[in-house]
Computed example of a mutant assay.
Amino acid sequence: MTLPKDAWEHLQDMIRRDHAKILARYFKDLGPNWEPEIASTRGAIRTACTIKDEDTATITLLRLFYFYIILGYGFRGLAPVFGVPSQQFQEAYELHPQIFLYFSQDKASIPDGLRPVEAQISFRIMGYTKESMTPAKALPFATRIAEEFVEANKGITFSKGKQVISYVDVKNGIKTLKIFALSQSEGIDIIKKVCKVLLLPYSSEFVGTSDKPQRASITKPVGKEMVYGKSVAKKRWRPSAKVRFRYAYMIVDNREFPVPLVDTTGRFPDAIIKKYG
């Protein structure tokens, strides 16, 4: 198939196609056979957001801006973050650099209306300080993370659940390694991978497993509850879901930004190792 001569027409067609699918879901209360109108509030909003074939590039952008920014649809998938200033954060992470591994649920398996289940694992690199850690010394850690947590340019998965599998090896600097997993075996598999990243021997003597809470996991809550005078959906509690490794980064004291080590998402173009599927 030959490329279109009119690049704008082709681009607009692609934008309009995908945007229309999102609008259909967002305004599903208006029915599958909705026609543009401005008599109702919802109808007027949808009419303003609907891209037309004759729209110019400017009008198309304004419609997108109205829906995704002003109405806020573009922020729906973003979880609120409670943070502290970077300097204050770094004061709590002096001494040894710390590596963070981030996992999240695949988009296709996320129930409608819910955010993806996430998991984060962190551990310190003993024997290194902010002075001794360098890009050259960070490379082997990034390489081993990629070897252990990435296969065929995709992050590996594990089943996150309510059971807590802990690993404490104080002598080698592992004090609070905790994995929320569906089973002890899956949690131990992840712990073994972390030990390989740190070039440490694994010992079953350091493994601890919390008694399974009698309370069942709440993966997809049913019903609502009143919060601050408003009815909201009930929250999940230690939900069970398969989560996939996405990226790893390192915090070094007095360095304003984290050091991206491994990235499978395209989010960190300056990552030491990039693995894109």
Rank of each mutant, 00 (worst) to 15 (best):
W8Y: 08
W8L: 05
L11R: 05
L11P: 00
Q12P: 00
Q12F: 04
D13C: 05
D13E: 08
M14S: 04
R16Q: 07
R17H: 07
D18P: 00
D18M: 05
D18N: 06
D18S: 07
H19P: 01
A20S: 09
K21Q: 05
K21G: 00
I22E: 08
I22D: 06
I22M: 08
L23Y: 00
L23R: 00
L23I: 00
A24S: 07
A24F: 01
R25K: 08
R25M: 08
Y26D: 08
Y26R: 06
F27A: 02
F27R: 00
F27N: 03
K28Y: 02
K28M: 03
D29F: 03
D29A: 07
L30K: 02
L30F: 01
L30M: 04
L30G: 02
G31R: 01
P32Y: 00
P32W: 00
N33K: 10
N33W: 02
W34E: 01
E35P: 02
P36W: 03
P36Y: 05
E37C: 05
E37S: 10
I38G: 14
I38R: 14
A39I: 13
T41M: 08
R42D: 15
G43S: 08
A44W: 06
I45F: 09
R46H: 01
R46A: 01
R46L: 03
A48H: 09
C49M: 09
T50S: 14
T50F: 05
T50G: 08
I51G: 00
D53K: 15
D53L: 15
D53R: 15
E54A: 14
D55P: 10
D55F: 12
D55S: 09
A57N: 11
T58V: 15
T58A: 15
I59D: 14
T60H: 07
T60C: 14
T60R: 08
T60L: 09
T60P: 04
L61P: 01
L61N: 11
R63T: 07
R63F: 05
L64D: 06
F65C: 11
F65A: 12
Y66D: 04
F67P: 01
Y68T: 02
Y68H: 09
Y68L: 11
Y68A: 06
I69S: 12
L71A: 05
L71T: 06
L71E: 13
G72Y: 08
G74E: 07
G74D: 07
F75K: 11
F75W: 13
F75Y: 15
R76F: 14
R76M: 13
R76L: 14
R76D: 15
G77P: 06
G77D: 09
L78R: 12
L78E: 13
L78D: 12
L78H: 14
A79I: 04
A79K: 09
A79H: 05
P80R: 14
V81W: 11
V81F: 14
F82P: 00
G83C: 10
G83F: 14
V84N: 08
P85Y: 10
S86M: 09
S86Q: 12
Q87Y: 15
Q87N: 11
Q87D: 13
Q88D: 11
Q88A: 13
Q88H: 12
F89G: 10
F89N: 10
F89W: 13
F89E: 11
